[in-house]
Amino acid sequence: MCSHMSISTMLFGLFLLASTFTSVDAFTVKSIFLFKDVIQSNTTALKTSGFNTLLIFRIGVLTNGDLVYYSTGSAGEAVDAPVVTNGSYVGGAALADKIKSFKSGTTDIERVEISLVSHDTTFQNIRSLINADGVGSDTILYKGFDALKAAWGLDAFNNDDESVYDVSSTVSFGVMLGDIGYKYSIAPYTNSGFWSNVKSQIDATVPELFDTVYLQVYDGGASNDPGTWQDTLGMPVVPIVWVTNDAKPSQGTTVAQARTKFSDWSSQYQVAGGGYWNDYDIEKLGSSYESYGGALTDIFP
């Protein structure tokens, strides 16, 4: 009788443990950054290759608070396309429908994010606008990102600040985005102390808003150790590698190399998933979304 009860109890415990793993795995991040106008991307491949998170690169904030989508024309030329003017969406139905389609029909995509990065004056402009007007629902920043979220069906905002690093405006901006309904993520390659400070302050104000860290482990962040960042930030991170590319071939990662790296990070650090920086490289070089996505789904079921 006692032996039978012990076995039953053990089996029940294993059942609970398996259920826990299933719940965690369901939210394991399998991500890819999308550079270049998403209208030109292979939507079907992106939706069916195992990725569950897309990060659209990138939106810029102008001095007056208007938003532009920095994309690429069919001839490869840079295109600064207005998407929000005076707090209203002006980006057109085709672009909005394309982005919303990522999560409709047959798809693996559960989360679509929009990324901002310091390749221009975006974060200086955000800081100036917040210092002047705050982040209330009547401000141009609030209206602009509210309009963009509604038009594109966005789930999250990705902060890729690589130069300004202003704690006060970063926290205020993040809290504002949470009020609109975005989740908040970052894509750091350095300055872990800054990001830890930002996370602590956002967590204290809006718990669970700051939920994902896409850690750059290539180029300027090539020496980053996911375990060290996890210790600093107090949360699992999602290491990001750069796919095979012709811009900086030495920083490229083949599918086989990606499998090895993600497998090692998963076993060593129990990271929150994995992902890729993709400067339109996969389509440009004729690589395979399915193969790169498969590396993630095999290691992070």
Rank of each mutant, 00 (worst) to 15 (best):
S168W: 13
M235K: 09
S192P: 06
F57A: 10
A151K: 08
T297I: 14
F210W: 14
G174L: 03
G136P: 14
L154R: 09
V29F: 14
I282H: 02
I240E: 03
L141P: 01
G136D: 15
S288T: 02
G221N: 09
F300C: 03
S223M: 02
G227T: 08
I180L: 10
S74D: 03
E77K: 00
S101Q: 07
I202L: 08
F102H: 11
R58A: 07
A94V: 11
V68H: 03
G105P: 12
S200K: 07
V213S: 07
D25Y: 10
S163E: 15
L34E: 03
V68W: 05
Q201K: 10
G193D: 11
D219G: 04
Y184V: 04
N159L: 11
Y184P: 00
D179K: 05
T254F: 14
G178T: 14
D155P: 05
I299R: 00
E290S: 09
G60T: 04
V61S: 05
D155E: 12
G153I: 13
G181C: 13
S196T: 12
S266L: 10
S200Q: 15
F300A: 02
Y218M: 06
D120V: 01
L129R: 03
I109Q: 08
S88C: 15
Y182L: 15
V213I: 14
A45Q: 06
S223N: 08
R259D: 11
G153H: 06
L11A: 14
D80H: 13
F210Q: 02
K248P: 01
N159E: 00
S118M: 06
Q216E: 13
V90D: 09
F145L: 11
